[in-house]
């Protein structure tokens, strides 16, 4: 034993996850620009390469070769490190999400998850909280009032919407009896949880969009009030890394929704091949991502105070009521 099982395989899996997520991020920006363009009857990027497919690569080169500017009055150490914290927080979440069952390779059974831990869902909540420090401290370190306001808003929003999210997760845990992703997926073998938990799904979906700071709930940025929020003072590669964190958060959130409510990697014929399981998960996540982009293109940004009120006065009570009803029904049925 094996250091191969203990260290090498998790290391390789982590590397694969990171590389795939970074690539997915690059093309996510392309897909979003293309789709938003279509929603408002534009073409979207179509110059670099066929159908504009090389656009993300051009963007990456542009960001890398931009001059590194560090404003004089910033807190240098934090200013430089914060984009890294943000992106690490969003990458690390992926470690507990299974993308398939398991397969045999070179005589070893390889599970398609970095670590399926007993408290997986809680781990996701905890790590999302840590990634928030990247935004919060970055906004503070910029020494700019707009940045600070954006950072404070972002923090308040994430803390607020963590509550309904936690309540939705608690409802899931009440039904499946476990917080391990493997068990939650197994419990959806016949029926995805979205059918048993429509209200929970709604609560989770809305608070998920708030957690990842997506428009129309992108309070930390709000160009028309706060210039560009927490990232006002950031440019070049550092801004690109913040951007990356945001998109990876979005991808991870879509996979979370697919796993928690849509049955994860399961689907017709999924037991035939691990590749097919992966395809099912990607298809489900893509549907969720499309809805995210659709909402962004259709709904104007809400006002900040109204948005906070909505969270505290509507979503939290709704989540509580859902949890109470779920608990009673589970107690009666079981």
């Amino acid at each position: 034993m094996d250091w191969i099982d203990a260290l090498l395989i998790p290391a390789i899996k982590s590397l694969v996850v990171i590389v795939v997520l970074l690539l997915a991020f690059a093309y996510m920006t392309y897909v979003e620009r293309k789709l938003v363009g279509r929603f408002v009857r534009r073409y979207g990027p179509n110059r670099a390469g066929p159908f504009g497919l090389l656009q993300p690569i051009a963007d990456a080169f542009k960001a890398i070769f931009k001059e590194e500017v560090i404003p004089t009055e910033v807190d240098k150490w934090l200013y430089v490190i914060c984009p890294g914290i943000a992106v690490a927080g969003s990458l690390i979440v992926f470690g507990v999400i299974p993308v398939g069952d398991s397969f045999m390779a070179w005589g070893r059974k390889i599970t398609m998850v970095v670590a399926d831990v007993n408290v997986g869902v809680l781990y996701v909540v905890a790590m999302a909280g840590l990634g928030l420090y990247g935004i919060f401290l970055g906004g503070w370190a910029s020494n700019n009032n707009f940045s600070l306001l954006g950072a404070l808003r972002s923090t308040a929003q994430v803390i607020t919407y963590e509550l309904p999210m936690g309540l939705a997760i608690a409802s899931i845990a009440t039904i499946t009896g476990s917080l391990r992703f493997g068990d939650i997926i197994a419990a959806q073998k016949t029926l995805p949880l979205i059918i048993l938990q429509p209200v929970g799904f709604l609560v989770y979906f809305i608070s998920g969009m708030a957690e990842i700071n997506r428009s129309p709930f992108d309070m930390p940025e709000t160009e028309n009030e706060l210039v560009s929020g927490y990232s006002t003072e950031y440019g070049g590669i550092k801004f690109a890394i913040y951007f990356m964190a945001e998109y990876i958060n979005m991808i991870v959130m879509s996979i979370l929704v697919a796993t928690l409510f849509l049955g994860g990697w399961q689907g017709p014929f999924a037991h035939l091949s691990p590749l097919l399981q992966l395809v099912w998960l990607v298809v489900k996540a893509a549907v969720v991502l499309f809805v995210f982009i659709w909402v962004r293109a259709s709904i104007p940004r809400v006002r900040y105070d109204k948005w906070m009120k909505f969270g505290w006065k509507f979503l939290v009570p709704l989540g509580l009521a859902n949890l109470a009803v779920t608990a009673v029904v589970v107690a009666l049925v079981a």
């Binding site: 809680l122 909540v125 905890a126 790590m127 928030l132 963590e162």
Partner: peptide, 15 residues
């Protein structure tokens, strides 16, 4: 510990 202390209490302090 991560959710309560690292996620909430430190954030409150920073606030």
């Amino acid at each position: 510990q991560l959710i309560v202390y690292a996620g909430a209490i430190v954030v409150l302090f920073l606030f």
